[in-house]
Measured scan of single mutants.
Amino acid sequence: MTSCHIAEEHIQKVAIFGGTHGNELTGVFLVKHWLENGAEIQRTGLEVKPFITNPRAVKKCTRYIDCDLNRIFDLENLGKKMSEDLPYEVRRAQEINHLFGPKDSEDSYDIIFDLHNTTSNMGCTLILEDSRNNFLIQMFHYIKTSLAPLPCYVYLIEHPSLKYATTRSIAKYPVGIEVGPQPQGVLRADILDQMRKMIKHALDFIHHFNEGKEFPPCAIEVYKIIEKVDYPRDENGEIAAIIHPNLQDQDWKPLHPGDPMFLTLDGKTIPLGGDCTVYPVFVNEAAYYEKKEAFAKTTKLTLNAKSIRCCLH
Rank of each mutant, 00 (worst) to 15 (best):
S3K: 12
C4L: 12
H5N: 09
I6Q: 10
A7K: 08
K13A: 04
I16L: 14
F17V: 11
H21M: 07
H21W: 04
G22Q: 09
N23Y: 04
N23H: 13
T26N: 01
G27I: 01
V28F: 08
V28M: 11
F29V: 06
V31L: 05
V31D: 00
K32W: 05
G38I: 12
A39H: 15
I41V: 15
R43T: 04
T44D: 13
E47Q: 09
K49Q: 06
F51G: 01
F51D: 02
I52P: 01
T53Y: 05
N54V: 04
P55V: 07
A57V: 04
A57Q: 05
V58C: 13
V58K: 05
R63D: 06
R63Y: 10
Y64I: 06
I65G: 05
I65P: 06
D66Q: 14
D68K: 05
D68Q: 05
D68N: 07
N70Q: 09
N70E: 09
R71C: 11
D74Y: 08
D74C: 07
L78H: 13
L78A: 14
K80H: 15
S83E: 11
S83R: 14
S83G: 10
D85W: 07
L86R: 13
P87Y: 06
Y88I: 09
E89M: 04
R92V: 12
A93H: 15
Q94D: 11
N97V: 13
L99P: 06
F100V: 08
P102E: 08
K103E: 07
E106Q: 08
D107G: 13
D107S: 13
Y109D: 02
D110T: 04
I111H: 01
I111V: 10
I112Y: 02
I112W: 03
F113E: 01
D114M: 04
D114L: 04
L115F: 03
L115M: 13
M122Y: 02
G123P: 00
C124R: 05
C124Q: 05
I127F: 12
E129P: 10
N133T: 04
N133F: 03
I137W: 01
Q138E: 01
Q138A: 03
Q138C: 00
M139L: 10
F140K: 02
H141G: 04
Y142G: 00
K144M: 10
K144N: 04
K144E: 05
T145C: 07
P149A: 04
P149E: 05
P149K: 04
L150G: 06
P151F: 03
V154R: 00
L156T: 06
H159F: 06
P160Y: 12
L162S: 11
K163V: 09
K163R: 12
A165Y: 13
A165F: 14
T167V: 09
S169T: 11
S169I: 04
Y173V: 11
G176Y: 10
V179R: 01
V179M: 05
G180S: 00
G180V: 00
G180W: 00
L187C: 05
L187G: 05
D190E: 06
D190Y: 02
I191L: 07
D193M: 08
M195T: 13
R196N: 04
K197E: 10
I199C: 07
I199L: 14
L203I: 08
I206M: 04
N210H: 07
E211N: 14
E211Q: 13
G212T: 02
K213Y: 08
E214G: 07
P217V: 05
P217Q: 08
P217E: 13
C218E: 02
A219C: 07
I220W: 00
E221A: 04
E221V: 03
E221R: 03
Y223D: 01
Y223C: 04
Y223I: 03
Y223K: 00
K224S: 09
I226R: 07
E227G: 10
K228L: 15
K228S: 14
K228P: 14
V229F: 03
V229N: 01
V229A: 07
D230V: 08
R233Q: 13
R233N: 05
E235S: 12
E235G: 08
N236M: 09
N236W: 07
N236E: 11
G237Y: 04
I239W: 03
I239Y: 04
I239N: 05
A240Y: 08
A241Q: 01
A241K: 02
A241S: 07
N246R: 11
Q248H: 02
Q250P: 01
W252Y: 07
W252A: 15
K253G: 10
P254D: 06
L255V: 13
H256N: 13
H256P: 04
H256Y: 07
P257A: 06
G258N: 07
M261L: 13
L265H: 08
L265G: 12
D266C: 08
G267R: 08
G267N: 07
G267H: 09
G274I: 03
G274N: 06
T277H: 07
V278P: 02
Y279W: 11
Y279M: 03
P280G: 03
F282V: 02
N284R: 02
Y289C: 12
Y289K: 15
Y289G: 15
A294Q: 00
A294V: 02
A294Y: 02
F295Y: 05
A296G: 07
A296F: 15
T298S: 11
T299L: 07
L301R: 09
T302K: 09
S307T: 07
S307R: 10
R309T: 10
C310I: 09
C311N: 13
H313S: 07
